[in-house]
Structures are given as C-alpha cells and as structure tokens.
Design a protein around this nucleic acid. Structure first.
Length: 582
RNA sequence: GCGCCGAUGGUCUAGUGGUAGGACCUGAGCCUUCCAAGCUCAUGGCCCGGGUUCAAAUCCCGGUCGGCGCACCA
C-alpha cells in the first residue's frame, strides 16, 4: 500500500474514507472534488472508447432489483454460504458442500445452521485439507449481497446489484426490441455495484460500494465476428493459464491477430483486449506494469466460459482492474427460463425452409376426465414423444410415462399429425461478450502510475503526471503578484478559460514557486502566469507540469492552444514561442 | 470473520498517570517581477464507550477504524 499516495489523495481531495466524523465506515470511500472529476473524466474516456466509437448504446438501470432476478442469475446461491473453519490448519470450507459430499443429503444449503453443525458432528466430518475433526466447530454464515426490502414489510425482498450487468440482462427483451431485433448490438452501463465484502482492504482497491463500467455485447455465436482489423496490430502482454501453471511461466507478447490465429484468446475477447489496451494506455496506465492474465480453470465464475483479467501492478502487487469474460448464453438462458419473457432474437433465414414436423393437439376434454391433475403432463409428454418418435403413434393407442406411471391414450384423442411446416427463421439465444471495468481500481492505478517524486533545482517535488485528458484540474492561472493590475487580468483570463470549458483553478497565495508546486501535486498539467509583460502586450507564460518549461503565448490564443494540448493534437514541446527570462 | 500491530491538529509526528509541543499545510499582513525564500500573527488535535484512580490522551477491557497475514473476493 502506498501510504504516500493515500495521504496525498486525502490531503488534495482525491478520495478519503467516508463518514470520518463518525469513526469512518469500512469499505466506503468518498471521492473529493479532484477525485470526482478525475472519475468523471475516466468514465467519459471509457464511454468514448467502448461505447461511442463502437456504436454501442448506454442504459441506466436501478441499483436495487427484486429477488427473482438474482435467483435466475445464480447470485443468490451464494447468499447462504456456510463456512466452517478447521481448528488445525485454519482452512475455511463450505459447510454445506461438506455435508452434501459426505452424506446422502442434497441441497444442504437450505438446512438451518444449528442442524448443519449437528450433521457435521454426527457424521464425524473432517477437514478435507488435513483430516482434523470439524465436530464442535461453529458454522458461520455470510452474505455477499446487501439485502433490503422493497416497500413495507418483508414480503418483497430485493438486493443491491453485485454487478451492473444484471440490470442489462433483465432488460434484454426491451433492448433487443430497441435494436430492432438485429444482432449484434452492445449495451453499456456505468454505475454503482455493491458487495458486502467480509474484509475490505487496501483503500479503494477493495470496497463495498464501487463503480463498474460494463459493456454487454450481444452476438450471434454462429454468424458474428469481431472487427479484428481495427485492433489487429495492437500488442498484448498475455499471461495464459498454462504459463501460470508452469514454474518458469512467462508472458507472451502477441498482437491481437496473432493471439487469435494461434488460438490463445477467443476472438471476441481478443478484440476487446485490443480496445482495452489502447484505452488503458491513453488514460495513463503504465504499460510496463500491465498485463492480461487468463483465469485458471478453477477460478472461472459460474457464468463464464473464458475470462481474461486486465491487471496492473501497484505497490508490487498485481491487482485486477477489469475482466473480459465470454459469458456465452448463460445469463440470457437463465432469465429466459426464470422469467415470463422471451430472451431470444428471431433470426430470419435467407430462404424459408420446409420441414416435416410431427405435432399433437390432444383432446383435453378426453384427457381431463381421464387423467385428472396429470392431464397437462400427459399432454406435454405426448408432444415430446411426437417430436422424438412419431412411429409410436402408428398403433391404436400410444403410451407415455408420467411420474413413473404409464398411461395409454387412444391415438385418435392425441390429435397427432405430420405436417409440412415452412420455417422462415429460428430463435437464437445471443452470446454475451463482457468487458467489465472496475473504475475505482483503474483510478487507483492511474494515480499510482502517475505518482512521481523528482528533483527540481535541488528541491524534491511530488508530482502527479496525469494525462491531460483525465487530469481533474486542467489549468492553473496565477498573477505573478497580486498587485499593479496583474490580479485583475489573471481573473479575467480565468473567467475566459472557464467559459471555454476548462477546469481552471485560480491562485494568488504565496510566491509563484509555491503555487506551481501545489499544482504539480494535484496533477494540473498546465499553468498560466500573468506578469508585468502581460499588462503591456497581452501575452502570458504557459508552463508545463512535467518539464517545468515555459513558453510565452498570446492570451487570445490560449483557449485553442489548451484545447489542442488536452486532446493530444498538440504536444507542449512543439510550441516554439520564446522562453521568457527566468 | 480469526490473528498480529497500530490510532495525538488538514498532513507527518514528539510526549508524559496531573489534559499537549514541533514540522509541513492552511488563513491574514509585510516582503518578493517566475519554481516549496524570509518575517509577524492566527486557526486547528489526544478515535469512541466503559473500568481502575483524587486525577486517564497515557493503565485495563470492549468497540470503531486502519495496516499486514489467513480466509473470502460472481
């Protein structure tokens, strides 16, 4: 943990622990004025690269969703996790899994904790790691989702979303309609997500409320291919699973094209690794402290078919800052099953095809009286049988089995027929490609990688070398001294630059060097100083943070000049105006 | 959640059973025509609760928060 960076972040208004006046609250941080703007700038840059340039669209879903959503998504399975800790080796194990593995019991998750403890003692369950007795150990419950009640009473439980993605998936039917049922299309969302972490750590690296920027790209797995050409030559630092499992595992440096051709990375994932690499670099992540690491097989989330994390090195540790996951049709198929709506997209064939299909149209006025409550199941069984084995309907009666009972039905009552059906297309369950960015961790990385301590004229100085595109304060404006009209002129320059859309700070406190140092520490890339010459010829000095070099420019040119410096169209070194005497 | 360590102005820190000093920062003034200069003045602090004691910021217990390790991390 970089104490210096955390201290600077607090002192200069980047971020600090929330509710300090009440002792603080673990796992929650407030972004101060500089941090909130930095975050906004990072989000804007992400939106520009992952959404606008890719032709995707953004939505804004609720942070609270009702329980059935998470039953479908699989997140609720983790709700009642029960842990038991081994007294010998200290290893924690899922108590419900131990019970299921060693007894005839299934669904141990729903058993109350005291009974699980009794089961562990009765069956003499032992630690899978060291074989120590677990009897007598207490079973602890934990819950990674924040639970709440929607409306009064507890009849309608809801949860704070543990990932923004579910807000997109549950709205897929509406979103597909918006996309005119055409694949592929992509939906982004930037917003808060919540996990009730057992143990928040490392300042804003592991918190209970965090911001995700997620893209869910819905594609036809049969037909759609990523536009690899756009990023084909982008070089990726890859750390595949097999290299991680080797003792002398190494990174591979491959272009996006090579990574796909050599079968190292799924093509859709590779495409977004290329996009991501460009983006991280553009906002100031140090590419020497950056890699893409493939998840090990045991590490994959319940929904994920393949996953690569973007990782950055901060303070000697590698931290996950984004996940690039191929979620296949997991989420949409779950919501398709659990909800009332259809989560498929109808894909029309080029030419309609004619197929023979065996169907039934059972006479329910016969089945009903005959089979009572089982009538519906019998009808379903007939339909299934017709699809599977139409010869079963050749005889006078057909038999189906429902719940272990065999039923005979006269074929004439089944409405059995074989028809030619014209099929104009089919329903496709889209696959999902998901780049998921942890905004807070990206911000920590950007700050950490920008943090420099260097020496200017024998004096140590601390400097945040933030990219101009994301720096929260873009320009500082100072009068050399606040007298002889310089202060007034500097205030006018400040107002003009603010009107031109820049984040400007005005400072006339202390000597000029002190003011430069303040802005270096905040990470302000440029400073404008109004001096005596300014009063005569309407020019000012423009100073760059990293080099501390200055050029003299006309006041009237400032807005255009600064805009070009911010966008990267112009580098400070290209300015050739004469350097003022210092 | 467990274990170890810690908590003094905004920040960094000194310190003692008799309620606190420094540095930096910040603010006001003087000085100063370009990189943390100088002078004067000022604001601001012992994490919370309980216990022991005549007296607790200091000792003890509990809590909160933080760092590290274990575990967890969709």
């Amino acid at each position: 943990m970089s104490r210096d960076l955390v201290e600077l972040a607090k002192r200069r208004g980047y971020f600090f622990q929330s509710a300090g006046a009440y002792g603080g609250v673990s796992g929650f941080y407030t972004y101060g004025p500089e941090g909130a703007t930095l975050k906004q700038n990072v989000e804007d840059a992400w939106r520009e690269r992952f959404q606008v340039r890719e032709g995707h669209r953004e939505i804004d879903a609720p942070t609270v969703l009702p329980e059935p959503v998470f039953e479908a998504s699989g997140h609720l399975d983790g709700f009642d996790d029960m842990l038991v800790e081994c007294p010998e080796c200290g290893e924690s194990h899922r108590a419900d899994h131990l019970v299921e593995d060693n007894t005839e019991i299934e669904e141990a998750e729903s058993i109350p904790i005291p009974e699980v403890e009794t089961l562990i003692a009765d069956h003499d369950l032992r630690c899978p790691n060291c074989d120590a007795e677990l009897a007598g150990q207490s079973v602890e419950e934990f819950n990674l989702m924040f639970e709440t009640n929607i409306g009064p009473g507890s009849s309608s439980p809801g949860y704070l979303r543990p990932e923004t993605a579910q807000g997109i998936f549950v709205e897929f039917p509406q979103l597909a309609e918006y996309a005119r049922n055409q694949l592929p299309f992509g939906i982004t969302q930037i917003g808060k997500a919540y996990r009730n972490e057992i143990s928040p750590r490392k300042s804003i690296i592991r918190v209970r409320e965090f911001t995700q920027a997620e893209l869910e790209h819905f594609v036809d797995p049969e037909a759609d291919e990523p536009p690899l050409d756009r990023v084909a030559d982008v070089e990726l630092t890859l750390y595949p699973a097999d290299e991680q499992e080797r003792e002398d595992g190494e990174y591979l440096t491959k272009t996006v094209r090579e990574a796909v051709d050599e079968g190292i990375v799924h093509e859709w994932i590779a495409y977004y690794l290329g996009v991501g690499k460009q983006w991280y670099e553009s906002i100031g992540v140090d590419m020497d402290r950056f890699r893409f690491r493939q998840h090990l097989p045991g590490e994959l989330a319940h929904y994920s078919a393949d996953c690569w994390d973007a990782e950055s090195e901060v303070d000697g540790d590698w931290i996950e800052i984004s996940g690039y996951s191929y979620r296949s049709d997991y989420d949409l198929s779950k919501h398709d099953d659990h909800s009332d709506d259809d989560f498929t997209v109808f894909k029309q064939y080029d030419e309609p095809t004619v197929v023979e299909r065996a169907t039934v149209d059972p006479d329910m006025s016969y089945l009903g009286p005959e089979f009572g409550g089982a009538a519906g199941d019998v009808a379903d069984a007939l339909e299934t049988l017709a699809e599977r084995d139409r010869t079963a309907f050749d005889a006078e009666t057909v038999t189906v089995e429902v719940d272990g009972e065999t039923h005979a039905i006269p074929v004439e009552k089944t409405g059995f027929s074989v028809d030619e059906i014209k099929e104009t297309g089919e329903h496709v369950l889209p696959h999902v490609v998901e780049p998921s960015i942890g905004v807070d961790r990206v911000i920590y990385t950007v700050l950490d990688h920008a943090y420099e301590e260097d020496e200017i004229e024998g004096e140590a100085r601390t400097r945040l070398a933030l990219e101009p595109e994301v720096a929260p304060t873009f320009v500082g404006v100072f009068p050399l001294m606040d007298k002889d009209g310089m202060g007034e002129t500097a205030r006018e320059v400040t107002a003009d630059l603010r009107a031109a859309g820049f984040d400007v700070t005005y400072d006339d406190s202390g000597n000029i060097g002190r003011r430069y140092r303040r802005q270096d520490e905040v990470g302000t890339p440029f400073c404008v100083t109004v001096d005596y010459d300014s009063l005569d010829d309407d020019t000012v000095t423009l100073r760059e943070r990293d080099s501390t070099e200055q050029v003299r420019v006309a006041v009237d040119d400032l807005p255009d000049l600064l805009a070009d410096l911010r966008s990267g169209d112009l580098a400070f070194g290209e300015l050739d105006a004469p350097t003022p005497d210092q």
